[in-house]
Amino acid sequence: MTNESDHNSKDEQPDRRQFIKGASCVIGAVIGSVPMVAGVRVSLSPLVDKEAAESGAMLRLGDLGDLETGVPMKFAIVADKSDKWTRYKDVPVGAVYLVKQKEDAKEPVVAFNTVCPHLGCFVDYRKEETDFFCPCHDSNFALDGKLKNGVSPRGMDTLEVELRNTTEVWVKFQRFKANSKDKIAIS
């Protein structure tokens, strides 16, 4: 291939040539960016479009009589859920551990979100070791939720509990930001 200047018939008009080159580049950039910008804009919609936050209403989980003092019991959280276009009724959205406290305790029942505050794995209750254990990065927590050892930045997340009609256990189910020292509610 030869050099462009050897063969060009319009070299005597450098201004015109420069203009044509510039115009080609500008038009090319403009027409190329239209579909690209249109696409990127939609792909950024999770940052722009705010979805209606879940209500975090109190849910009735069980009865005080169902619980054994000092033994965590797992309850599935079943609630209505919106996922983009779909509106679900009564589907599992998470789980909590309820731990009934001793008679003289300040709170009769403590509730924990079952999700590990480190990176969101499901924390198991180990009966023999009487602790909560995260199978992902081996954090373990005492039954009061405090971190015993491991990499989790904070203890297990407690949830608001209310006793209604003396025995009904109601819990406000919330999720919290993972891997942060502070407990920050995200729903």
Binding site: E4, S9, K21, A23, G28, V30, I31
Partner: peptide, 17 residues
């Protein structure tokens, strides 16, 4: 004869526009 760049490129670009 001409080269594709820039005369024909501009015509193509304008047509695409």
């Amino acid at each position: 004869d001409e080269y594709f760049w820039p005369e024909q490129v501009l015509k193509d670009a304008v047509a695409c526009l």
